[in-house]
């Protein structure tokens, strides 16, 4: 019980380092989800609205990419961003940019897959109607997004939740630098190794609360979308 008490008192005392780490995690996850959401929305919309060769193969490839472990994404991106890599001259390794880009690549298949699944559930008559009304590409996209606002929100929230709890990319591309790129998950790993169990537990409790909060919100939005 003592470690839990100590962890709770760390949280309640408003420990600056803990809350800075939480803030870093949230901002990295927010920006990477937005980046993945922006690109993923475009790809998912085109895959939904248009038929092109190898479309099915593309969809199954994207779905398969959801299973890629975060350390593999981190490893590949490390190869690109390290000094000797093709993007090494950018000097982004061990900076927030590297973490955000890595997390975006990890989140992209999740966003596309969620959106494509959601868009596929729209009534067939919707697609026939926008086709027969001769809508322009931009009108078709706008109407598809408006018809599936719930899907869009859920895709972003789900991917935000997944990104928030990943550790491999943040560790490999961010370097776990204190007051800079240290996130909740990398901090938990570090503090546990150092024997600072209370600090790790405090971060674990906060991560759990955030995950539960995001999942509850996703569930409520889904339920609301189902009713309307």
């Amino acid at each position: 019980m003592k470690p839990i008490q100590s962890a709770l008192s760390l949280i309640l005392s408003g420990n600056r380092e803990i809350f800075f780490t939480v803030g870093t995690s949230l901002s990295f996850s927010f920006f990477s989800t937005m980046l993945a959401g922006f690109i993923g929305l475009g790809i998912a919309t085109i895959v939904t609205l248009y038929r092109f060769p190898l479309r099915r193969f593309f969809i199954s490839l994207i779905t398969s990419l959801m299973a890629v472990p975060t350390v593999v994404v981190g490893l590949v991106m490390y190869g690109f961003l390290s000094r000797s890599g093709p993007l090494g001259n950018l000097g982004w390794l061990y900076t927030p940019y590297a973490v955000i880009i890595g997390q975006s690549i990890f989140a992209l298949p999740i966003v596309i897959s969620y959106l494509w699944t959601g868009f596929s559930k729209i009534d067939l008559r919707f697609f026939e109607t926008i086709h027969t009304l001769g809508c322009s590409f931009s009108t078709k996209c706008f109407l598809t997004w408006r018809e599936s606002q719930t899907v869009l929100t859920n895709a972003l929230l789900s991917s935000f939740g997944r990104v928030l709890s990943e550790v491999g990319i943040s560790m490999m591309l961010g370097g776990n630098i204190r007051w800079y790129t240290r996130t909740m998950t990398t901090a938990i790993a570090l503090e546990t190794n150092r024997g600072e169990y209370e600090q790790a537990l405090a971060l674990g409790i906060l991560l759990l609360l955030l995950s539960i909060g995001i999942n509850t919100l996703t569930f409520r939005i889904s339920a609301q979308g189902g009713r309307t």
Binding site: F126, E128, T129, I130, T132, L133, G134, C135, L143, R146
Partner: peptide, 29 residues
């Protein structure tokens, strides 16, 4: 064909929102 021919379903699909917003889609071009 999509510009010159229009088909209306027996049970038509109306987009979310108001009647006005739906009719605006018909005026898109």
């Amino acid at each position: 064909l999509t510009q010159e021919v229009t088909y209306v379903h027996q049970h038509p699909y109306l987009f979310r929102g108001s009647v006005y917003r739906n009719l605006l889609v018909g005026l898109h071009s």
